[in-house]
Amino acid sequence: MDTLIVAARVALSLGVVLALLWYLQRRLSRGALGKGVANPVTVVGRQPIGQKASVVVIEVDGARLVLGVTEQAVTVLHEKSLSPTTTTTLDDAISLLGRPADSAPAMAFARSLETATATADDAASAQRPVASAPLAGSILSPSTWRQTAALLRQNR
């Protein structure tokens, strides 16, 4: 009989904690969703090129920027305005490098940039919650758990 009472208390406590989390999530996210606040900067891809340096591709207001990031500074390497039909291709990445298309380092970098861009686009589209779903972005949402599992699998 004592085991049944303890189990009921644990279940009730868990229910209260989940209800509190749900309430807080609804309360805190209402302000951001109501104001239409969106993340203006999207990281498309990142490629480390040294111990403390990397090349980052980001999108800001319809423009794609290639940034050189070091410990001391962030430098804009290239900027390209994107139209809805524009996509970055392997040839575009090679032309950004200023090397002949048959150069082995240029091809390797272009392939890794293309892969990173495709992977980042897929991940970004999978991580965007659907605004119409009542539990979107909540700890109670099944999509949140799927995204968490996918992230853990990716980092193995």
Rank of each mutant, 00 (worst) to 15 (best):
R64F: 05
A110Y: 09
V57R: 13
A150I: 04
L24C: 03
T89C: 01
A63F: 08
D91G: 13
N39Y: 05
A8G: 01
D121I: 08
S54F: 04
H78E: 13
L65Q: 09
A108Y: 12
Q127G: 10
P142T: 05
D102H: 13
L12Y: 01
M107V: 14
K52Y: 13
T42W: 12
T148R: 03
L28Y: 14
R30Y: 14
L140C: 02
L67M: 11
A53F: 02
V74C: 14
L152P: 00
T88L: 15
T87D: 11
N39R: 14
E71P: 07
A120W: 05
A93D: 08
A8C: 01
D102K: 08
T70H: 07
L140E: 02
T87S: 14
V37F: 10
A101C: 00
T119L: 12
R46T: 15
V60E: 04
A149F: 06
T42H: 15
R153T: 03
Y23P: 00
A110F: 06
R128K: 13
R128A: 13
G34W: 06
E79P: 00
L14S: 03
V76F: 03
T70R: 11
L33Y: 10
R30T: 11
L90K: 12
R64S: 13
I49F: 07
L28M: 14
M107P: 01
T87Y: 04
L97D: 07
V69Q: 09
L33R: 15
S138E: 05
P142F: 07
V6P: 00
V43L: 11
A19S: 05
G98E: 05
L12C: 00
A19H: 01
G45D: 10
S81G: 11
T117P: 02
D121P: 01
R9E: 03
V57G: 05
R64E: 12
L152Y: 08
L77W: 03
L151D: 09
G68H: 14
S112P: 01
Q47H: 12
R46L: 12
A123P: 00
A120M: 08
P40S: 03
V17L: 07
V44T: 06
E79I: 05
H78N: 11
V41M: 09
L96E: 11
T42N: 14
T87N: 11
L77C: 09
T144V: 03
P100G: 15
Q154M: 08
V55T: 14
R27W: 09
L20Q: 06
L135Y: 06
G31Q: 12
S13R: 10
A104C: 01
V76N: 10
K35S: 13
S112C: 07
Y23S: 02
V17P: 00
V41L: 15
L77G: 15
V56K: 04
V60S: 04
N39L: 09
T89V: 04
K80H: 12
P84C: 10
T86I: 03
G45H: 10
T148D: 00
R64N: 06
L21W: 11
A133W: 11
V130G: 03
D2F: 00
T117E: 13
K35H: 11
N39V: 07
L24R: 09
P134H: 02
N39F: 03
A106W: 03
R46Y: 05
L90D: 13
A8L: 02
G34P: 06
S138H: 12
T75C: 07
P142R: 07
K80I: 04
N39E: 13
P129G: 04
L18K: 10
Q154E: 14
S13C: 04
D102W: 12
R156T: 03
A101Y: 02
